[in-house]
Amino acid sequence: MRTQKSKIFRALVIIAIFIALLCNSKTITSKTRIDMSGFFTPALESVHRAWALVKKIIPFSSIREENRLLRERINLLNRKIEELKVVSAENARLKTILDFRKTIPYVTIPAQVIGRDPSNWSNSIIIDKGINSGLKFNKAVLSTKGLVGRVLEVGRYSAQVLLITDPNSKVGVVIARNRQGGILVGMPDGLCKIIYISLDSDVLPGDKVITAGYGGVFPKDIMVGQVVSVGREPGRLYKYAVVKTAQDLSRLEEVLCIR
């Protein structure tokens, strides 16, 4: 009991001396402060460096987020550029069709190709215009580059067009250079063939082929294509000429239907 009291007494005496020293001696207090701060400096420096590092690292998350947003924006803008390119190409195509429409002496209905023949045998397309748009059966269908085919089945909102490359298609044609005639029939591989060309005719590769205007379905002098090769089928009294169509019919997107 006595020892505990003496311990408390000693502690109080030491504190009182310490307070007295602090209050009365600036030199002692400042020295003590400097020594203490010197003792803690390395620890403080470490803390400071660590904090500086943390301050550097913390913005990374926001930079990463900003980077992500910017990338998304770039992707969005790239997509818009691609969309605009498509719109621009479509615009150019439609402008060509519009210009072409003005040059031909027929009333035409522009239509878009919405489907193609599922078989390898036939060559036909489905267009997005029908009776409601004024389309009629057996009328010629053109593109800006030349003849495409004729309307063979008309629905209310769509129609099927038999292309000139279909084996069932027959078109009266003439060679533009010498007006020698023949019948253009289609082939399943996308080319056409003029049959019934007389043996003495001088059809040559590179000759332009145009419609003859017989029969009233196809107007006269519409570009059909170009002769690729000329030959003679064995046992027949006629020559034939293989024709490449002026318009690539497998890549057709818009057509003009004569009303």
Partner: peptide
């Protein structure tokens, strides 16, 4: 279906 979509 093929017959519906073809002109054969």
């Amino acid at each position: 279906l093929k017959d519906i979509f073809t002109l054969d």
